[in-house]
Each structure stands twice: as C-alpha cells, then as structure tokens.
Design a binder for these strands. Structure first.
Lengths: 145, 145
DNA sequence: TATTGTTATACTCTATAACTATA
DNA sequence: TATAGTTATAGAGTATAACAATA
C-alpha cells in the first residue's frame, strides 16, 4: 500500500497499470500453460474469440500490439492451424483474420480462462468501481494517441 | 466502444487493461524519445524516482518485471551512470539499487512525463472513478498471485 | 500521396533452468 | 533447505525503416 502522500502527489496510475498488466498476464499464461501460448498470442486469441473477423490493422488497434509484431504472432497461429488470412474484397490491400474450427476451440478456452480471472478478481468489486475502472482506462487511451 | 452485449457477457476488463498499457507505454516512450529509454527502463526509473532505495526483488515486485529481465535493465542503467548497486548490510545476498546524481535528474524527467500523461488523461475523471480504478487494479493483482 | 501489410535488422524482453553466495 | 541475484540459451516482442500492392 502506498502512502497517502504519494497517492496525492506522485504519479501512480500508470505504474499501477503496468504492474497489474504484468501480473495478470503471467497468471493467465500459467493457467493456460497446456496450450503453450505467449502473452501476445493469448491477447490476440481472446480478442478474436468473439467470432468477428478483423483486419490486421483492426486487430492491432484492439490488442494494442504493433503491426510488425502482429505479423509474427499471426504467422505462428496460422502455422498451428488456428486462423487463416482471407482476402478482403472490400479492400484488397488487407486480409480478414478468421479463426479456424480448431482455432475457435482454443480461443474459447482462452476466453474462459480470461473470464475466470475476471470473475475471481471482480467478485468483491462494485459496479460503480468497475465503471470508474472503465472510464479511467478509456481516458488513458484517449490521452495516448 | 463495445456493444452492451459484450460488456455484460464477455470478458473485457483484461483486454482493456492490455490495450491501455500498450498505448500509454508507446505514448510515454515517444514523449521521452530524447532520453532513449525502453519501456522497462522507463518503468524502472519511474519507480525509483521517489528516491527510496530498493532491492532487486522489491523492484521486481513494484514494476511487475521478472528478475532475470531486471538484471539486464539494471545493467544498462548502471552502465549509463544512472544507478548503482550498493551492498546491503541487512542481507548480504542482495543489493540496494540507488539512483546517482544524474540518474535522479533523468528519473525526475521520467516522473514528470508520467505525471503529465496522467494529468491530461485524468482531468475529466472524478475522484470516485479514480477510486474504482484503483480498487479494480488491486483486485486483479490480488487474484493473480 | 497515403495506407495495408510484410520484410529486415538490431536490440530488448521473456521463460526456464542452472548456478553462487548467503540465509 | 530456501532465497537473492546473476548467467545462459532460445524464442518472442519492439522500434525503425524500407518495400510492394492497393487506395
């Protein structure tokens, strides 16, 4: 717990953000160890798990991952048969990333693991606090463009 | 903006967390480009900026960075003259990481950049929302041990 | 001219395990 | 025996710049 003084005078919101991200990511990777996925792969699959196809650009915005990083991540997931890059008729420069049958299975397990962590963690949190969390994250993102 | 349906049924708290972390980190590194620091180095310096010495272990807990990663980060920062590893009389297995004079200067600038982002981002956020944010981050970390 | 996505390079971060010194 | 910190290795993530294809 930080001192009152620090909370009021020093920056803490971003430090806490990073700490929480590192921790939850490590916990998530551990709970999904059997699937042998990296943090970025988990992040990517969790985003794709809703079944909506996305372009690489959209996925990059959704995950916060750089395009150049995403190329490698998608390469590995494609090689493992979890997704495909389909031509995009609407814009022939881009692809639509779509989960395969087996990709959907893996993505579902990832999504469940993510949901599990959230359920456990947020059990004692009020809707109002959750709302504040969402608002602050949105504000941080908005200020970082 | 996500659909109502997704907010109520799917996991979003961790996905939003990762997205926000990536974004703010990129913005921070860009605003501190002249200092030529990586995200981890920024995180480390921002934590040390309060002037309190720490062991590597404590720093690892504070930043969420792995010990093995921290060794390299500290190596580089030490080589640049920003910090020193001082013997720790209390426990001779460990070191106390302390900022040097020039390290304090750099850390101050890092801390100011972090504070700037926070001020800008959180200008329109209420204390109550900020409180919810803090509570949720704490809950996520607690559930990830 | 600008954007989408990939490639290339060099460096940083991570996981894992082994190792030394100290507790 | 356990912990603090480092080292070693291999793979993954990053910034940056350049590139082809398309808009």
């Amino acid at each position: 717990m930080k001192s009152e003084d620090e909370l009021s005078t020093g920056p803490w919101a971003l430090l806490a953000l990073q700490r929480a991200t590192h921790r939850t990511l490590q916990a998530l990777a551990a709970s999904l160890a059997e699937l042998d996925l990296t943090a970025s792969e988990i992040n990517t699959l969790a985003n794709l798990a809703d079944g909506r196809g996305r372009t690489v650009r959209q996925l990059s915005l959704d995950t916060g991952t750089r395009g150049t990083t995403l190329t490698g991540v998608l390469d590995r997931l494609e090689r493992r048969g979890y997704l495909t890059r389909e031509p995009n008729a609407a814009d022939r420069r881009s692809f639509r990333i779509a989960l395969t049958e087996s990709g959907r299975g893996v993505a579902r397990r990832v999504r469940e693991a993510v949901a599990d962590v959230e359920r456990t963690a947020l059990a004692g949190v009020s809707p109002r606090q959750l709302d504040g969390y969402r608002a602050v994250l949105a504000a941080l993102q908005e200020a970082s463009r």
